[in-house]
Design a protein around this nucleic acid. Structure first.
Lengths: 233, 233
DNA sequence: CAGTATATTTGAATATGTTTCATTTACAAG
DNA sequence: CTTGTAAATGAAACATATTCAAATATACTG
C-alpha cells in the first residue's frame, strides 16, 4: 500500500501548516508585523523556530499566507452576501457594511496586506495584486450590472468609483477606530450611501417628480419586505 | 561673551540635524522604512552611527521628524493655494489636485506617516494625529464655509465627507501608480469632482421636499433591513 | 594663550531578531 | 527490522538597531 491511512503524513503536515498560520494571524494582529517575533509564533503553534522556515520561506511569506486566508474569507462572504440581493443600491449597501465591519475588526490585516513593500513587493507583487483583484471583482460586477440596468451612471470610470468606495470606507474605518465613541457603523454607512446616491447613482426623478418616484420606492419597499419574508420563512 | 559669533555652535548643530533629516528622507523614500539602515543614513549625512542617536531618540523618531517636514510643506501649500480661490467647487478641485500630485510623488511618505504602528503609536499618537489634523483643517474649513454659503449639503457629517475625499484620493493615487499608462491625473480629478458634485454639493433643482423626506425614510428602512439581514445570517 | 569644563562625536560592544544548516527524529515501504 | 526520505530541531551565523565609555571639539576663564 502506497498510503496506509490515506495521507496520515500529509494530513499532519497540513494541520501543522494551518496551526502556524493561525498563530501568526493572532500574533500579527496583536503586535503588528514588525514587533511579531518568529520565536513567539513558533512557540504558540508548538514547533521549533526552524520548523517555521520549512513551511514558509521567510516572515513575509508567512504574512502573505495569512493575507491569502483573510482575503479568501473576505471575498467569499462578499460574493455570498450579494447573491440574493437584486437592487444595486442594496447590494452596495451590503458590500459597504461588510467591508467596514471586517476592516474595523481586522484592520491590521488590511493595512499589512496592502503595504506595498511588505506582501506585494517584487515577485509577490502580482500575487498580492491578484488577491485584491479577486475581492474587488465582486464590487466591479455589481457596478457593471448597475450601469447596464441604468441604475448607475455610466460616465464615471469604474476605477474611480471603486477608489472612492473602498478608499472612503478605509478612511471611515480609521475614523471609527480613532473616535470610537462618537461614530457608529450605522450612521457611517447611512451617510456614506447618501453621498454615493448623489454621486454615482443615476438621478432618476429629475424630471418626472411625484408618482413615478413613489412607485419606484414602493418597489424597493416590496423587495425589502420580500427579503425579510424569505429570512423569516 | 556668552556667545562669540551668535550661535556659531547652535548653527552647526542645527545644520547637522537638517542634514540627517534630509538624508533620512531620501533613504526612506528609496528603500522604505524597514529596509533603510541607520548606517546608511549616517554615512550619507557624513556622521557616525552613534551621532544619529544624539539627535533622534531612535529610528521612529527620525521618521517622525521627516514626516513633520513633509506635512509642514503639504499644509502650507494647501493653505496658500486656496487663498485666492473663492468658489467652493474650485477650492476643492485645487485641494484634490494638490493632494493627488503630492501623494503620487511622495506616496512613501504618506504611507509611512500614516502607519499606525510607526509614527503614531504610543506617546507619539497625539503628535502624529495632530500633524494630520492641521493638514485636514484646511479642507475642513473649506467645507464648513461651503455649508454656510449653501454650496455644500449640510446633512452629511464633515468626517464622512473628509474620509471620502482623502480616502478616495489616496486610493486614486495608488491606481495611478499601478496603472500609470492608462490613468492620468486630469481625468482622475475630473471624474472625482464629478462624483463629489453629485454627492456632497447642494443640488439646485433637485426634487420636491416631500419627495426628499420620503427618500430619507426609504433609506432608513433599507438600512434597518440590512441590519436585520446581518443579524439573521 | 594655556587650562578647564562642557558639549558633541565616535565606533566598538551589546541586544534583539531573522534565517541557515548540520543533525536528529519520525515515518513509510520492503 | 532496516533503510531511505521527509520533517523537525535548535544552536550558530548573520543583520541591524541601540548603547556607552572614551575621544574630540568647542567655548570660556584667568
Amino acid at each position: 500500500m502506497p498510503e496506509t491511512r490515506p495521507q496520515t503524513r500529509r494530513q499532519k503536515v497540513e494541520k501543522k501548516e494551518q496551526a502556524i498560520i493561525a498563530a501568526a494571524r493572532v500574533i500579527f494582529q496583536k503586535n503588528g508585523f514588525e514587533k511579531a517575533k518568529i520565536a513567539d509564533i513558533a512557540k504558540s503553534s508548538g514547533v521549533a523556530e526552524g520548523t517555521v522556515y520549512t513551511y514558509f520561506e521567510n516572515k513575509n511569506a508567512l504574512l502573505f499566507a495569512v493575507a491569502v486566508e483573510f482575503y479568501d474569507r473576505l471575498t467569499r462572504d462578499a460574493a455570498l452576501g450579494i447573491k440574493d440581493i437584486s437592487i444595486t443600491y442594496e447590494r452596495l449597501q451590503f458590500l459597504a457594511r461588510h467591508h467596514l465591519e471586517r476592516v474595523s475588526k481586522e484592520w491590521q490585516m488590511l493595512a499589512l496586506a496592502m503595504l506595498p513593500d511588505k506582501v506585494s513587493n517584487e515577485y509577490r507583487k502580482t500575487e498580492g495584486y491578484q488577491l485584491n483583484r479577486t475581492y474587488v471583482e465582486v464590487f466591479d460586477t455589481v457596478i457593471r450590472e448597475g450601469i447596464n440596468r441604468g441604475e448607475i451612471r455610466s460616465d464615471i470610470p469604474l476605477s474611480v468609483v471603486r477608489d472612492i468606495f473602498y478608499g472612503g470606507l478605509e478612511y471611515g474605518a480609521r475614523t471609527m477606530r480613532i473616535h470610537a465613541s462618537t461614530t457608529d457603523i450605522d450612521q457611517t454607512i447611512t451617510h456614506f450611501m447618501e453621498v454615493l446616491k448623489g454621486g454615482i447613482f443615476q438621478q432618476i426623478n429629475q424630471q418626472k417628480p411625484q408618482d413615478e418616484s413613489l412607485e419606484k420606492m414602493m418597489s424597493r419597499l416590496e423587495s425589502a419586505t420580500a427579503k425579510l419574508e424569505a429570512i423569516a420563512r
